[in-house]
Design a binder for these strands. Structure first.
Lengths: 337, 337
DNA sequence: TTGTAAGCGTTATCAG
DNA sequence: CTGATAACGCTTACAA
């Protein structure tokens, strides 16, 4: 088999009759090094001619820069997460950095520390919406040297982060329900366990209800699939003697499932049972009865996260960068009687 | 600034009192090289002790293997694409390969060939749902050496692919509409242009309508945002003298927007106006009136794509691998009167 | 069973 | 402005 090797920098050099150094400088165009125009053109032509592509790996080896960052997320699918990833990708377009996506759960459950999979060839890490990321990160980076920014609902005091204050968002949402006369507000959420610890939404729900003198009730989800949500919710609605007049959902995907469950039992979203989601995915506004939701500031979050990460990559010792954003309660028909 | 360097293989060797060779062999555990247990343990302990992580870049440089693949997609957001990416990531979990996501549009519109961004440190490329990928690939890989598999609605004869026959799917869908008595079937789709060439859905729609002696009509979308779909569709429905009795949508996201538009003009989905989407995203089954759709076999597609790519990475000269999958028309309430 | 040494394709540092 | 030459951290013949 005649496997033609990729041409190297020195092949270009040879072809153009110059040195390797010259080729590097022409191609990297740092333009600090002044190179005669005539030479420049010749090198460019030669590179084009023989189809040269710089070898990023070799560059990375010597510079220690990888031109890529890892995006850690938990792979329970949610439309919100998909949107964030998408937005992040846009945010970073033109930055020259690649995004490598990683499943944080998998990361935590596999392989010992020495496993090859644990060293990511990345200049930094952005982590979305997971509370396990902090500890995981420490475990994976004992020397804590690689730049790291968390974004979303979870963060830790000692690291760069762009948080979204879902506690405040939830308080707003529950308060809104109570003020519009709902009393029997059920929270639909995954059953907390060691993999899914209760989050701030839970705490906010419990506190707000308690302060209003209302009872907390839950529909526990075995997982976050729409099918599970629909099943659990419609069974609950059908069987309980004490019909809820509002459902507060862990996220908008859950709200979509709950929407259907409300239809299933012949009730009307909004009029009979109020519905509130969390995240702010666009789709919730396009239903026959649009769903009230706690909307997360995705654009701002992504912009800041990238700003923070880029800064820390440039300047590893810069001061701690933290910002907590407020989500916005978007009131729609699903909470109107 | 005291920036502790990452420990290298030789640091481990020093700490364990062995040579670099030994460390490599212990850690890679190719286990072909037989190493005394005592030594093995000592090396492992030393590695753990000083927090060693192998440097993938150096490995890649010497082996020419990167342990990562690129996932090229077009960054018009669609839930379907998000799901496919997600599924693909799952599919590849445990394979030892990373996924780097890439925006094919951006790829095509930026930078000359010599740009550094063009050499991806990947062992292969999977491309989703874009007709520009073939040409783009050829341009980016003049030597055509890097393994490449396309999946979804577009493919080329001369490369590995897992296609989904949206032509057949569309014929099924339109036929279903006609057989259920619809006559005035409008296709909602982006206006074809050089960036968005007409695809097989268009051809299938036109042919099927023509053969049934029906007139083709279109709602042209300026873009694929839900807002645009809603606006364009509800204006059309409001203004036309000749009310459609069915809407066939470019994809399920568009169907979601159209669903809302039908509500906006006070019509009923299904009874007044039938609605058909394409892709098979789960959400469409969770609306008050579930939407009929052309469902793509995502799991099978991803499994095959990865199988094909992995094979070609191992065996660059293996025979052409191609498979065209049939999507399935899932009939739901939106096409029932 | 273990060590030595030659690269892999760059960038960076100095001399010319 | 140009050209040797030394890293970068690792794999892999080939020796010992």
């Amino acid at each position: 088999m005649l496997l033609k090797k990729r041409p190297t920098r020195d092949d270009v050099a040879r072809a153009a009759g110059v040195s390797g150094w010259t080729v590097s400088n022409v191609l990297n165009g740092s333009s600090l090094a002044s190179i005669r125009e005539e030479t420049r053109v010749r090198v460019l032509a030669a590179a084009e001619e023989i189809g040269y592509r710089p070898n990023n790996t070799a560059r990375a080896l010597v510079t220690g820069r990888f031109s890529s960052i890892a995006f850690w997320m938990c792979f329970d699918y949610s439309q919100h997460r998909a949107h964030v990833l998408h937005r992040m990708k846009q945010q970073m377009a033109g930055s020259g950095f690649e995004i490598i996506i990683r499943d944080i759960e998998q990361e935590l459950n596999t392989a010992p520390n020495t496993s090859r999979s644990f060293h990511l060839p990345v200049d930094g890490i952005i982590v979305l919406d997971t509370d396990t990321a902090g500890p995981a990160f420490s475990r994976l980076n004992p020397s804590a040297s690689i730049p790291f920014v968390s974004m979303g609902g979870y963060w830790t005091e000692e690291r760069d982060c762009v948080g979204v204050d879902l506690y405040a968002g939830t308080v707003d949402a529950i308060t809104h329900l109570i003020e519009s006369g709902r009393r029997n507000i059920v929270y639909i959420t995954p059953q907390p366990n060691k993999h899914w610890p209760a989050d701030t939404r839970m705490a906010a729900y419990e506190k707000t209800m308690r302060e209003a003198g209302l009872e907390t009730r839950f529909i526990w989800l075995p997982d976050l699939s729409l099918a599970s949500v629909r099943k659990a919710s419609s069974e609950y609605l059908r069987d309980t003697a004490n019909k809820p007049d509002a459902l507060f959902c862990h996220n908008d995907d859950v709200a979509l499932g709950a929407y259907r469950a409300i239809c299933d039992v012949g009730a009307t979203v909004g009029h009979d049972i109020a519905l509130v989601g969390c995240d702010g995915i666009e789709e919730c506004d396009y239903l026959a009865c649009p769903i009230t939701t706690i909307s997360q500031p995705i654009d701002e979050m992504c912009a800041l996260a990238w700003e923070f990460l880029a800064r820390r990559i440039e300047e590893p010792d810069c001061p701690l960068q933290q910002r907590i954003l407020k989500p916005k309660l978007v009131v729609r028909a699903s909470t109107q009687p």
